[in-house]
Design a protein around this nucleic acid. Sequence first.
RNA 1: GGCUCGGUGGCAGAGUGGUUAUGCAGCGGAUUGCAAAUCCGUCAACGCCGGUUCGAUUCCGACCCGAGCCUCCA
Length: 460
Amino acid sequence: MSIVLYNTLSARKEVFEPLQPDRVTMYVCGPTVYNLAHIGNARPVVVFDVLFRLLQTQYREVIYARNITDVDDKIIAAARDSGRSIEDVTAEFTNKYREDMAALNALPPTLEPHATHHIDGMIALTETLLAKGHAYVSEGHVLFAVESMPDYGRLSGRSLDDMLAGARVEVADYKRHPGDFVLWKPAAAEDPGWDSPWGRGRPGWHLECSAMIRAHLGETIDIHGGGRDLIFPHHENEIAQSRCAHGGDYVRYWMHNAYLDIDGEKMSKSLGNFRTVRELLAHYRGEVLRFALLSAHYRSPLNFSTDLLAQAEANLGGFYTALRGVQDVPVPESDDIDLSAEGFYCALEDDLNTPLAIAELHALAKQLHKAAEADKPRLKARLLAAGKLLGILQQEPEAWLQGGAAADDIAPEAIEALIAERQAAKQDRDFARADAIRQQLLDAGVELEDGREGTLWRRA
RNA sequence: GGCUCGGUGGCAGAGUGGUUAUGCAGCGGAUUGCAAAUCCGUCAACGCCGGUUCGAUUCCGACCCGAGCCUCCA
């Protein structure tokens, strides 16, 4: 029973072993709080939430930190454009981010450090890098000298020569090497800034993660995650800063999720297919969005479409239908489930193979439908345990099936009344009337299921 | 141009050197007053060309196509 993770650094799957036997440290790059989170932002949150849940089944202590970037050019611009204060903007979008991620059943991280609370640490880190000859001051900026680090570029698999060859951006003339990046930059008088040995300024983008990891998790952490696009330059530069300042390994397992597309196209503002989580939540329940995000492996591109969401909805409906069938079956203590023997668990242990895990849920649901009464409690417990690990299936089945997008169309009381009327019609063998009611409800988005113990209904 | 990753049945999406992925959709059947749900059965795939092999979708090479990164970006 061991977790295997794909490590970007080695470009292969590795058996996961934390630095300390019963304690895991994990850091995931969080949002820059200047606008609403989009569905692409939600992918790493959901993926690493599953990892967080998985790790907690094996390790006594799992410290999961996800930062809030609350100082950044885009924030300054957003505040200026809306005539609001920086604090006002960052507070609003920090809160909305938390709400949106909670709606996706993402557990709150253990720690949520804010960049602006760690300016001292960033200045100290910069001073260390200067003292060790890895950084230099130029025209008010402090820059990291990439040539001072022999294996710079290892994470992203590129050399300084490659980068020179591929340079397509004009190089600022205060840089010694085009790859040098800003640790500290001067702040305009009207912009937020902090006093430093190099004048009033603010930190470069990469610095905060290095400083906050050092402050909260130590010099070497087990897992660092984020989107693929962060491999270079962000994570490469974090490595450079932290390893040159502190030595050691910095991060033992680097994990990166692939992008998602919208209807086959890259999501972008210019294409007009930018989908915020908040907007999607108006049409789909968070659990549906979450399931859709988990329906492909995290390292594969995922095409986010209405079709995908419909499939997610259908899959979840199927699981909840299976659970509804055993609503009154008591669940034994979930603690006595041997996870290591469970297919869904082994699937997740293998680099978070969520599609395979979901296939195992289908197998469990099928068994549950066919099970003898005596076997149902155990199967129900196993299905619920699997759902819990994925962050789904924890609602009351009846509530789930009767909720959904069409929930405003017709009230439950009206549905129940029509069902009663139809029941009476059936007693009188007035099937024409009974079928008319069925059709009427179907038109309102409600499907009826006649069973031995009465009629159940669900939103279609 | 440099670096990296992919191309699986109608769709989504795992996986494997030789045996059913799974789900949705379709088709046939059971069940139902009719349905739904459920069950049983069924159809169908591994970009192209070579190579290695007793055997390749799986390994190797070329090619075609697609995606990402190259200092805004999950």
